[in-house]
Amino acid sequence: MIFNAPFISVMILIIFGLYAMVFRRNLIKVVIGLDIVESAVNLFIVSLGYVKNGIAPIYTNSPGGAMVLPTPQALTLTSIVIGVATSAMLLSFCILIYRYYGTLDTRKVRRLRE
């Protein structure tokens, strides 16, 4: 049961993030929700590769014992880098929208309606 804790927290985080994206009326909060979902997915990938009492997969002459899977960590690293790029771009869009519209309310940021 205790080893399912990471997966349960992943689900809770994803639900929190999606709640923020669907119900929060502020563009910055939408971006925050997206980042929460992203952290949850990263946590999920890392916890997939966890081995009980494993050591970090960075030794050439390992001291022995099981190693944690390195592939999920490499995937997470890539995903974090992509996430940083996404957040930076979205937040800079928010700055520009605020500069031109004077608001960050999602109900008002819809001049493209129809």
Binding site: V37, V41, I45, P72, F93, L96, Y100, Y101
Partner: peptide, 27 residues
């Protein structure tokens, strides 16, 4: 006049959440 940025923001948000869902499925 900010309209293109609004469009890009919406596009980027839906693509990013979609890409995260794909990553979740891949995991």
């Amino acid at each position: 006049g900010g309209k293109a940025v609004e469009a890009a923001f919406k596009y980027a948000v839906v693509s990013s959440i979609g890409a995260l869902m794909i990553l979740f499925a891949i995991a």
